[in-house]
Amino acid sequence: MATVTLRNVKKSFGKTDVIHGVDIDIADGEFIVIVGPSGCGKSTLLRMVAGLETITSGEVQIDGKVVNTIEPMERDIAMVFQNYALYPHMSVFDNMAYGLKIAKVPKSEIADRVATAAKLLQLEPYLQRKPRELSGGQRQRVAMGRAIVRKPAVFLFDEPLSNLDAKLRVQMRLEIKALQRELGVTALYVTHDQVEAMTLADRMVVMNGGVADQIGKPLDVYADPQTAFVAGFIGSPPTNFLDGGLVPGLSNGVTLGIRPEHIQMGDPGRLSAHVAYTEALGAETLIHCRLTDGSQLTARQDASVPIPAEGQSIGITWEDGHAMTFDANGRRL
Protein backbone atom coordinates (compact mmCIF):
# COMPACT_ATOMS: atom_id res chain seq x y z
CA MET A 1 0.00 0.00 0.00
CA ALA A 2 1.57 3.23 -1.04
CA THR A 3 1.19 6.50 -2.82
CA VAL A 4 3.01 7.23 -6.05
CA THR A 5 4.05 10.70 -7.05
CA LEU A 6 5.54 11.87 -10.33
CA ARG A 7 7.11 15.33 -10.31
CA ASN A 8 7.87 16.88 -13.70
CA VAL A 9 9.17 13.56 -15.00
CA LYS A 10 10.97 13.80 -18.32
CA LYS A 11 12.61 11.27 -20.56
CA SER A 12 14.77 11.59 -23.61
CA PHE A 13 16.44 8.94 -25.72
CA GLY A 14 19.53 10.70 -27.01
CA LYS A 15 18.26 13.96 -28.41
CA THR A 16 14.67 12.83 -28.80
CA ASP A 17 12.38 13.91 -25.98
CA VAL A 18 9.64 11.40 -25.45
CA ILE A 19 8.16 12.57 -22.15
CA HIS A 20 7.93 16.31 -21.69
CA GLY A 21 7.29 16.62 -17.99
CA VAL A 22 4.47 14.70 -16.33
CA ASP A 23 3.03 15.35 -12.87
CA ILE A 24 0.73 12.81 -11.27
CA ASP A 25 -0.30 12.26 -7.66
CA ILE A 26 -1.64 8.80 -6.99
CA ALA A 27 -3.39 8.10 -3.74
CA ASP A 28 -2.99 4.89 -1.76
CA GLY A 29 -5.11 2.11 -3.25
CA GLU A 30 -6.08 4.09 -6.29
CA PHE A 31 -6.41 2.46 -9.74
CA ILE A 32 -4.86 4.76 -12.32
CA VAL A 33 -5.06 3.97 -16.03
CA ILE A 34 -2.69 5.65 -18.43
CA VAL A 35 -4.24 5.67 -21.87
CA GLY A 36 -3.09 7.05 -25.18
CA PRO A 37 -2.25 6.13 -28.76
CA SER A 38 0.93 4.21 -29.72
CA GLY A 39 4.08 6.23 -29.23
CA CYS A 40 2.61 8.70 -26.74
CA GLY A 41 5.09 7.61 -24.07
CA LYS A 42 2.68 5.79 -21.78
CA SER A 43 4.74 2.60 -21.57
CA THR A 44 7.93 4.58 -21.08
CA LEU A 45 6.31 6.40 -18.19
CA LEU A 46 5.29 3.12 -16.56
CA ARG A 47 8.75 1.66 -17.08
CA MET A 48 10.25 4.67 -15.37
CA VAL A 49 8.07 4.04 -12.35
CA ALA A 50 9.13 0.38 -12.50
CA GLY A 51 12.80 1.30 -12.67
CA LEU A 52 13.40 -0.41 -16.00
CA GLU A 53 14.04 2.92 -17.67
CA THR A 54 16.23 5.69 -16.27
CA ILE A 55 14.61 9.01 -15.46
CA THR A 56 16.15 11.86 -17.43
CA SER A 57 14.89 14.54 -15.06
CA GLY A 58 12.22 14.98 -12.46
CA GLU A 59 11.31 12.74 -9.58
CA VAL A 60 9.42 9.53 -8.99
CA GLN A 61 8.36 8.89 -5.40
CA ILE A 62 6.86 5.72 -4.04
CA ASP A 63 5.35 6.13 -0.60
CA GLY A 64 7.06 9.50 -0.25
CA LYS A 65 10.50 8.11 -0.99
CA VAL A 66 12.40 9.22 -4.11
CA VAL A 67 13.21 6.06 -6.06
CA ASN A 68 14.93 7.51 -9.14
CA THR A 69 18.09 5.47 -8.72
CA ILE A 70 16.74 2.46 -6.87
CA GLU A 71 16.66 -1.00 -8.52
CA PRO A 72 13.19 -2.30 -9.50
CA MET A 73 13.21 -4.98 -6.84
CA GLU A 74 13.77 -2.49 -4.03
CA ARG A 75 10.95 -0.22 -5.20
CA ASP A 76 8.39 -2.62 -3.79
CA ILE A 77 6.56 -2.91 -7.09
CA ALA A 78 5.39 -5.83 -9.21
CA MET A 79 4.87 -5.70 -12.91
CA VAL A 80 2.66 -7.62 -15.33
CA PHE A 81 4.07 -7.58 -18.84
CA GLN A 82 2.27 -7.52 -22.14
CA ASN A 83 3.69 -10.88 -23.23
CA TYR A 84 3.47 -12.20 -19.65
CA ALA A 85 7.24 -12.83 -19.62
CA LEU A 86 6.88 -16.16 -17.84
CA TYR A 87 10.04 -18.21 -17.46
CA PRO A 88 9.42 -20.98 -20.02
CA HIS A 89 11.41 -23.71 -18.29
CA MET A 90 9.86 -23.23 -14.86
CA SER A 91 6.58 -24.64 -13.61
CA VAL A 92 3.76 -22.28 -12.69
CA PHE A 93 4.71 -22.69 -9.04
CA ASP A 94 8.35 -21.82 -9.67
CA ASN A 95 7.38 -18.88 -11.84
CA MET A 96 5.39 -17.41 -8.99
CA ALA A 97 7.93 -18.34 -6.35
CA TYR A 98 11.05 -17.09 -8.16
CA GLY A 99 11.02 -13.56 -6.77
CA LEU A 100 10.43 -14.86 -3.25
CA LYS A 101 13.25 -17.38 -3.56
CA ILE A 102 15.61 -14.59 -4.51
CA ALA A 103 14.37 -12.53 -1.58
CA LYS A 104 15.22 -15.57 0.60
CA VAL A 105 11.72 -15.95 1.96
CA PRO A 106 11.45 -19.19 3.98
CA LYS A 107 10.22 -22.19 1.97
CA SER A 108 7.07 -22.73 3.99
CA GLU A 109 6.02 -19.13 3.57
CA ILE A 110 6.66 -19.29 -0.18
CA ALA A 111 4.42 -22.34 -0.40
CA ASP A 112 1.74 -20.52 1.61
CA ARG A 113 1.80 -17.37 -0.44
CA VAL A 114 1.81 -19.18 -3.77
CA ALA A 115 -1.05 -21.40 -2.61
CA THR A 116 -3.09 -18.35 -1.59
CA ALA A 117 -2.45 -16.59 -4.88
CA ALA A 118 -3.20 -19.75 -6.87
CA LYS A 119 -6.49 -20.13 -5.04
CA LEU A 120 -7.40 -16.51 -5.69
CA LEU A 121 -6.65 -16.91 -9.40
CA GLN A 122 -8.07 -20.45 -9.78
CA LEU A 123 -4.65 -21.74 -10.79
CA GLU A 124 -4.45 -24.58 -8.28
CA PRO A 125 -4.76 -27.44 -10.80
CA TYR A 126 -1.98 -26.01 -12.95
CA LEU A 127 0.79 -25.35 -10.44
CA GLN A 128 3.05 -28.10 -11.78
CA ARG A 129 2.55 -27.26 -15.46
CA LYS A 130 4.91 -25.37 -17.71
CA PRO A 131 3.72 -22.06 -19.21
CA ARG A 132 3.54 -23.52 -22.73
CA GLU A 133 0.92 -26.01 -21.52
CA LEU A 134 -1.42 -23.19 -20.50
CA SER A 135 -3.92 -21.12 -22.46
CA GLY A 136 -3.50 -17.38 -22.93
CA GLY A 137 -5.87 -16.51 -20.11
CA GLN A 138 -4.15 -18.91 -17.71
CA ARG A 139 -0.73 -17.49 -18.57
CA GLN A 140 -2.12 -14.06 -17.87
CA ARG A 141 -3.26 -15.28 -14.47
CA VAL A 142 0.15 -16.73 -13.71
CA ALA A 143 1.71 -13.37 -14.56
CA MET A 144 -0.69 -11.75 -12.12
CA GLY A 145 0.01 -14.42 -9.55
CA ARG A 146 3.69 -13.68 -9.80
CA ALA A 147 2.87 -10.06 -9.02
CA ILE A 148 0.51 -10.88 -6.15
CA VAL A 149 2.79 -13.22 -4.20
CA ARG A 150 5.33 -10.43 -3.83
CA LYS A 151 2.78 -8.39 -1.86
CA PRO A 152 4.01 -5.23 -3.52
CA ALA A 153 3.03 -1.68 -2.66
CA VAL A 154 2.25 -0.91 -6.31
CA PHE A 155 1.04 -3.04 -9.21
CA LEU A 156 2.20 -2.02 -12.66
CA PHE A 157 0.38 -3.36 -15.70
CA ASP A 158 1.78 -2.87 -19.19
CA GLU A 159 -1.06 -3.59 -21.64
CA PRO A 160 -1.68 -6.93 -19.96
CA LEU A 161 -4.79 -7.83 -21.96
CA SER A 162 -3.72 -6.95 -25.47
CA ASN A 163 -2.75 -10.53 -26.38
CA LEU A 164 -6.09 -12.02 -25.39
CA ASP A 165 -9.15 -12.46 -27.55
CA ALA A 166 -12.07 -10.05 -27.12
CA LYS A 167 -14.21 -12.24 -24.87
CA LEU A 168 -11.40 -13.20 -22.54
CA ARG A 169 -10.32 -9.59 -22.37
CA VAL A 170 -13.67 -8.55 -20.93
CA GLN A 171 -13.53 -11.36 -18.40
CA MET A 172 -9.95 -10.63 -17.31
CA ARG A 173 -10.73 -6.94 -17.11
CA LEU A 174 -13.39 -7.65 -14.52
CA GLU A 175 -11.07 -10.01 -12.66
CA ILE A 176 -8.26 -7.47 -12.52
CA LYS A 177 -10.60 -4.84 -11.16
CA ALA A 178 -12.05 -7.20 -8.56
CA LEU A 179 -8.58 -8.35 -7.54
CA GLN A 180 -7.24 -4.84 -7.16
CA ARG A 181 -10.23 -3.89 -5.00
CA GLU A 182 -9.85 -6.98 -2.87
CA LEU A 183 -6.12 -6.47 -2.30
CA GLY A 184 -6.40 -2.69 -2.05
CA VAL A 185 -3.09 -2.21 -3.80
CA THR A 186 -2.25 0.96 -5.70
CA ALA A 187 -2.22 0.16 -9.40
CA LEU A 188 -0.88 1.78 -12.55
CA TYR A 189 -2.27 0.34 -15.72
CA VAL A 190 -1.17 1.23 -19.24
CA THR A 191 -3.45 0.58 -22.21
CA HIS A 192 -4.35 1.95 -25.61
CA ASP A 193 -7.89 0.63 -25.24
CA GLN A 194 -10.25 3.36 -24.08
CA VAL A 195 -12.84 0.84 -22.93
CA GLU A 196 -10.34 -0.67 -20.50
CA ALA A 197 -9.47 2.83 -19.38
CA MET A 198 -13.08 3.84 -18.81
CA THR A 199 -14.06 0.67 -16.97
CA LEU A 200 -11.00 0.06 -14.81
CA ALA A 201 -9.86 3.47 -13.78
CA ASP A 202 -10.56 5.34 -10.60
CA ARG A 203 -8.82 8.12 -12.42
CA MET A 204 -7.37 8.08 -15.89
CA VAL A 205 -4.42 9.88 -17.44
CA VAL A 206 -4.80 10.64 -21.14
CA MET A 207 -1.36 10.91 -22.71
CA ASN A 208 -0.67 12.61 -26.00
CA GLY A 209 2.79 13.11 -27.47
CA GLY A 210 4.65 12.79 -24.18
CA VAL A 211 2.31 15.06 -22.22
CA ALA A 212 -0.51 14.20 -19.85
CA ASP A 213 -3.38 16.03 -21.56
CA GLN A 214 -5.89 15.39 -18.85
CA ILE A 215 -6.10 13.56 -15.54
CA GLY A 216 -9.46 12.83 -14.00
CA LYS A 217 -12.29 10.42 -13.28
CA PRO A 218 -13.32 8.57 -16.46
CA LEU A 219 -16.78 10.09 -16.64
CA ASP A 220 -15.47 13.59 -15.93
CA VAL A 221 -12.91 13.20 -18.68
CA TYR A 222 -15.59 11.95 -21.04
CA ALA A 223 -18.04 14.70 -20.20
CA ASP A 224 -15.56 17.51 -19.95
CA PRO A 225 -12.46 16.95 -22.11
CA GLN A 226 -9.84 19.65 -21.73
CA THR A 227 -8.34 19.28 -25.20
CA ALA A 228 -9.58 18.39 -28.64
CA PHE A 229 -7.27 15.34 -28.53
CA VAL A 230 -8.95 13.98 -25.41
CA ALA A 231 -12.39 14.65 -26.87
CA GLY A 232 -11.43 12.77 -30.02
CA PHE A 233 -9.59 9.89 -28.31
CA ILE A 234 -12.08 9.05 -25.58
CA GLY A 235 -15.45 7.94 -26.88
CA SER A 236 -16.45 5.73 -29.79
CA PRO A 237 -17.46 6.80 -32.37
CA PRO A 238 -15.28 9.85 -31.73
CA THR A 239 -16.45 13.38 -31.14
CA ASN A 240 -17.45 15.31 -34.26
CA PHE A 241 -15.32 18.36 -34.93
CA LEU A 242 -16.74 21.25 -36.95
CA ASP A 243 -14.94 24.31 -38.19
CA GLY A 244 -16.25 27.35 -36.28
CA GLY A 245 -16.77 29.27 -39.49
CA LEU A 246 -19.62 26.95 -40.44
CA VAL A 247 -21.62 27.54 -37.33
CA PRO A 248 -23.60 30.73 -36.80
CA GLY A 249 -22.32 32.63 -33.77
CA LEU A 250 -18.77 31.18 -33.85
CA SER A 251 -15.66 32.65 -35.43
CA ASN A 252 -13.09 31.11 -37.75
CA GLY A 253 -10.17 29.33 -36.10
CA VAL A 254 -12.36 27.94 -33.35
CA THR A 255 -13.34 24.29 -33.48
CA LEU A 256 -16.63 23.00 -32.25
CA GLY A 257 -16.86 19.50 -30.81
CA ILE A 258 -20.10 17.58 -30.34
CA ARG A 259 -20.39 13.98 -29.25
CA PRO A 260 -22.43 11.75 -31.60
CA GLU A 261 -25.10 11.10 -28.97
CA HIS A 262 -25.71 14.83 -28.53
CA ILE A 263 -26.64 15.46 -32.12
CA GLN A 264 -30.34 15.76 -32.79
CA MET A 265 -31.89 15.51 -36.18
CA GLY A 266 -35.00 17.13 -37.56
CA ASP A 267 -36.03 20.23 -39.45
CA PRO A 268 -35.24 22.98 -39.08
CA GLY A 269 -31.69 22.57 -37.68
CA ARG A 270 -28.74 24.80 -37.09
CA LEU A 271 -27.01 23.15 -40.03
CA SER A 272 -28.35 21.27 -42.97
CA ALA A 273 -26.89 17.99 -44.13
CA HIS A 274 -27.77 14.88 -46.02
CA VAL A 275 -27.50 11.31 -44.80
CA ALA A 276 -24.49 9.58 -46.38
CA TYR A 277 -25.05 6.10 -44.91
CA THR A 278 -26.38 4.48 -41.76
CA GLU A 279 -25.17 1.64 -39.56
CA ALA A 280 -27.75 -0.16 -37.46
CA LEU A 281 -25.93 -1.84 -34.56
CA GLY A 282 -29.01 -3.27 -32.86
CA ALA A 283 -29.34 -1.22 -29.70
CA GLU A 284 -28.38 1.95 -31.47
CA THR A 285 -27.94 3.34 -34.94
CA LEU A 286 -25.05 5.41 -36.27
CA ILE A 287 -25.96 7.95 -38.89
CA HIS A 288 -23.13 9.37 -40.96
CA CYS A 289 -24.04 12.71 -42.47
CA ARG A 290 -22.28 15.00 -44.87
CA LEU A 291 -22.58 18.76 -44.47
CA THR A 292 -22.91 21.14 -47.39
CA ASP A 293 -19.18 21.95 -47.25
CA GLY A 294 -18.29 18.27 -47.45
CA SER A 295 -17.27 17.69 -43.80
CA GLN A 296 -18.43 14.50 -42.09
CA LEU A 297 -20.52 14.15 -38.98
CA THR A 298 -21.70 11.10 -37.07
CA ALA A 299 -24.82 10.97 -34.98
CA ARG A 300 -25.89 8.20 -32.67
CA GLN A 301 -29.56 7.54 -32.00
CA ASP A 302 -31.60 4.96 -30.18
CA ALA A 303 -32.79 1.99 -32.20
CA SER A 304 -36.40 2.90 -31.41
CA VAL A 305 -36.11 6.11 -33.44
CA PRO A 306 -36.89 5.59 -37.16
CA ILE A 307 -33.78 5.41 -39.33
CA PRO A 308 -33.62 8.15 -41.99
CA ALA A 309 -33.16 7.01 -45.57
CA GLU A 310 -29.75 7.39 -47.16
CA GLY A 311 -29.54 10.52 -49.30
CA GLN A 312 -32.31 12.25 -47.35
CA SER A 313 -31.75 15.91 -46.39
CA ILE A 314 -32.04 16.64 -42.71
CA GLY A 315 -31.44 19.45 -40.26
CA ILE A 316 -28.89 19.05 -37.49
CA THR A 317 -29.01 20.66 -34.11
CA TRP A 318 -27.68 20.34 -30.58
CA GLU A 319 -28.15 21.86 -27.16
CA ASP A 320 -25.76 24.67 -26.29
CA GLY A 321 -24.68 22.91 -23.11
CA HIS A 322 -23.36 19.97 -25.09
CA ALA A 323 -21.22 21.97 -27.48
CA MET A 324 -17.49 22.08 -26.69
CA THR A 325 -15.32 24.76 -28.24
CA PHE A 326 -11.56 24.46 -28.74
CA ASP A 327 -9.04 27.11 -29.76
CA ALA A 328 -6.60 26.74 -32.65
CA ASN A 329 -4.17 24.81 -30.41
CA GLY A 330 -6.85 22.33 -29.39
CA ARG A 331 -7.28 23.81 -25.89
CA ARG A 332 -10.78 23.96 -24.49
CA LEU A 333 -12.24 27.47 -24.40
Binding site: F81, Q82, N83, A85, L86, Y87, A103, R146
Partner: peptide, 23 residues
Protein backbone atom coordinates in the same frame (compact mmCIF):
# COMPACT_ATOMS: atom_id res chain seq x y z
CA UNK B 1 15.01 -14.39 -25.84
CA UNK B 2 12.41 -11.65 -25.24
CA UNK B 3 13.69 -8.57 -23.40
CA UNK B 4 10.67 -8.77 -21.14
CA UNK B 5 12.10 -11.94 -19.61
CA UNK B 6 15.22 -10.12 -18.49
CA UNK B 7 13.08 -7.29 -17.18
CA UNK B 8 10.77 -9.65 -15.34
CA UNK B 9 13.82 -11.21 -13.71
CA UNK B 10 15.05 -7.76 -12.77
CA UNK B 11 11.73 -6.91 -11.18
CA UNK B 12 11.91 -10.26 -9.38
CA UNK B 13 15.22 -9.09 -7.99
CA UNK B 14 17.59 -11.32 -9.95
CA UNK B 15 21.07 -9.88 -10.38
CA UNK B 16 22.66 -10.41 -13.81
CA UNK B 17 24.55 -13.60 -12.96
CA UNK B 18 21.52 -15.01 -11.20
CA UNK B 19 19.47 -14.34 -14.33
CA UNK B 20 22.18 -16.04 -16.37
CA UNK B 21 22.24 -19.15 -14.22
CA UNK B 22 18.53 -19.43 -13.39
CA UNK B 23 16.93 -18.36 -16.66
Amino acid sequence: VPDELAEAARVDGAKPMRFFVDI
